[in-house]
Design a protein around this nucleic acid. Structure first.
Lengths: 229, 229
DNA sequence: GGTCTAATGTGTATTAAGTACATATTTTCA
DNA sequence: TGAAAATATGTACTTAATACACATTAGACC
């Protein structure tokens, strides 16, 4: 029987509430970006003394009257100003001792945004884009959360047109391939990559060409209007 | 900034704790079984008046000093007596109004057990195996949780040797195929199915044959010792 | 304007995986 | 001994994944 039922008395009910309704819930967002041919994550300097100097993911406590998905959208919007962004729940992390301030269970989400498209106040709050490679140690269990989300992302990149969210509206196929390569951590064959993307109907040619490149310019593509995220 | 840092005073810290550390956390386990050629789920009659007569998943509140994974193993063991069972977290469900007694966020897990292998007290507590098909309406958001877990299971049955957990130690290939068919909800070609399973090295022949069948008996197989769940 | 550079754009042959499909064999039962 | 019912098995076809090479184009420089 769950402790939430069959109370013997009102006093018993109150006692149960006091002993169980004292966990805090947070959401943590792994916000991926792409710059300098590397996958980046938006992180913030931890302001807990236990993790002084370490980077942490962007997160916040879930408010008492807030759905968890709403909380994740709120965190994202507060930090990046962006609405209607792809956000996906990955899983919960619930080790007792993961947060020094008490029992805080967190729900991890990941999101993908175009760094150049939003103007966040990077001077503010030590908020910063960091290449994943450089984030060896992070506050809390955030490195584990990041790994789990990255793994989920890797599983999905050929299933759903997710990575376009990391690029500007118009991009060359080479840019897309480099992005896939840095997400997957492996090099891909150009012809096979183009074939694989081509059959998915995720792309539309713009008719334009790259500019200011020191070589033959590639065609610019944009995401196919109907392609669902 | 998260509300857990930069307190202006001890009083402020206490206030924050009081307003945020009041969510309860539960785990809900979708425990799959297999009987009468149908996929079954272990459910219990809801004892909340709001859901009188409806079935609910097996769950419990997470204790203050308990990891969430530990909680799910505890629920499973309390209900089935089984230890060391495959259990996988799927995701959190956190709608504000999902539980009538207060804000209870739940983490969903799924598990697979061999019904014939455990002797649970089915008379006890209206605990019962029900075919999934028959569970049209369930208490809370448990039908949604069940659907989500079933979908995850379907994605994994050819990736990991999960379904063997639902069968007795020795089984014929036909039993395995019927199980796959009822999980996936589609019929499979026998020759192609055997080929697909054969390449995975999940099975070992026992050298024995089926008994007491009204036709040519099939060979009995058992799970390959090294095959990871 | 000719040449160099660097990357674009493209096709085919091979292998692996998935799908469709039919017949001989073995055991039990009557 | 024959009928019933399910086992065991192989091949042709299609689709997806992989490996791999060469002609083309725009810019930069002289």
């Amino acid at each position: 029987m769950t402790p939430l039922t069959n109370f013997k008395s009102a006093a018993a009910e109150k006692r149960i509430h006091q002993s169980y309704f004292k966990i805090a819930l947070s959401v943590d967002c792994v916000i991926f970006g792409y710059a300098e041919k590397e996958l980046q994550v938006l992180v913030i300097k931890s302001d807990l003394k236990e993790f002084a100097g370490q980077w942490s993911l962007l997160g916040d406590l879930v408010r008492p009257e807030e759905n968890i998905d709403e909380a994740s959208y709120r965190v994202l919007e507060e930090r990046t100003g962006l609405k209607n962004v792809y956000l996906e729940q990955v899983q919960a992390f619930g080790e007792c001792k993961r947060h020094p301030s008490g029992r805080v269970v967190t729900i991890a989400y990941y999101s993908l945004i175009d760094i150049s498209n939003h103007k966040l106040q990077l001077n503010d709050n030590d908020l910063s884009w960091r290449p994943i490679r450089s984030l060896r140690k992070m506050a809390f269990d955030h490195r584990q959360i990041l790994d789990t989300c990255l793994q989920r992302l890797r599983e999905q990149v050929f299933e759903k047109p997710l990575l376009f969210n990391l690029l500007p509206a118009k991009f060359a196929l080479r840019n897309l391939q480099e992005l896939y390569e840095s997400v997957l951590g492996e090099v891909l064959d150009r012809r096979n990559f183009r074939k694989k993307i081509a059959v998915k109907d995720w792309l539309r040619e713009t008719g334009e060409l790259e500019r200011s490149v020191l070589h033959r310019p590639g065609r610019l593509y944009t995401r196919q209007a109907g392609s669902k995220r």
